[in-house]
Design a protein around this nucleic acid. Structure first.
Lengths: 110, 110
DNA sequence: AATCTATATCGTAATATTGCAATATAAAAA
DNA sequence: TTTTTATATTGCAATATTACGATATAGATT
């Protein structure tokens, strides 16, 4: 099929999956890291920083935005995107929670 | 094309992308959460816990294992999988690091 | 207004993912 | 040994993703 049965899972599970999926491509990881590095949200030069064509980058930015990982909009003829901290925090909390639970129980047998 | 240009990105970027991608499907999120919940790695009943057919679940388990999110093997005629803490910690550190940097700088304009 | 510059969208080809029926495999139980 | 039980693999259809050339859009510049 190729169609994910999203309706069979909880909203929370789908939400985490959506955010993680957006992080699930090296180009998007690179974009996020670049945004973090430049420490600014004016990032019109991002096209020169990645080994991908402009339409491809635009598409990746769109997906990051849809997933809530970045926010921003056009400012004149330059984009103005920056990382959405709230979403990163969600991820951090989620994995921190799992880590904490794992440390607590330690019932691994494998 | 449909083929990711992995060779254009760093190993670290590819590694994070691979792990995140494995988390990027609600069924796999559900599997991870189930493994966490049962607090045990004998999980032969996972097929009854998910709204998916057995081959589909087997496939998702394989992907989780390839990404290093779970470890384990067959024990008799039952699977024995559990969460690989090291990989979860990698994720936690990665996003914790981003969060920390964001808190430090606070240069968001969007 | 005409042009330049930067980003988005469209269209499309190549590849990947998702899901499952059918089947294979292998240990356990009878 | 035969059967049962549990998981993996194969094969395939439907859908999604990735990438980019061509083109559209829109503010900035001249």
């Amino acid at each position: 099929m190729g169609i994910t049965k999203s309706d069979q899972f909880t909203d929370k599970q789908n939400a985490i999956a959506t955010i993680a999926k957006a992080f699930g491509h090296p180009a998007r990881v690179a974009i996020m890291e670049y945004l973090l590095k430049v420490d600014s949200c004016i990032c019109g030069d991002i096209v020169n920083e990645l080994p991908l064509a402009q339409p491809t980058i635009s598409q990746h930015l769109k997906e990051l935005k849809n997933a809530g990982l970045i926010k921003g909009n056009i400012e004149g003829n330059a984009i103005c995107y920056c990382i959405d901290e709230k979403t990163i925090e969600k991820l951090q909390n989620y994995f921190g929670n799992i880590s904490a639970k794992l440390r607590k129980h330690k019932t691994n047998c494998c």
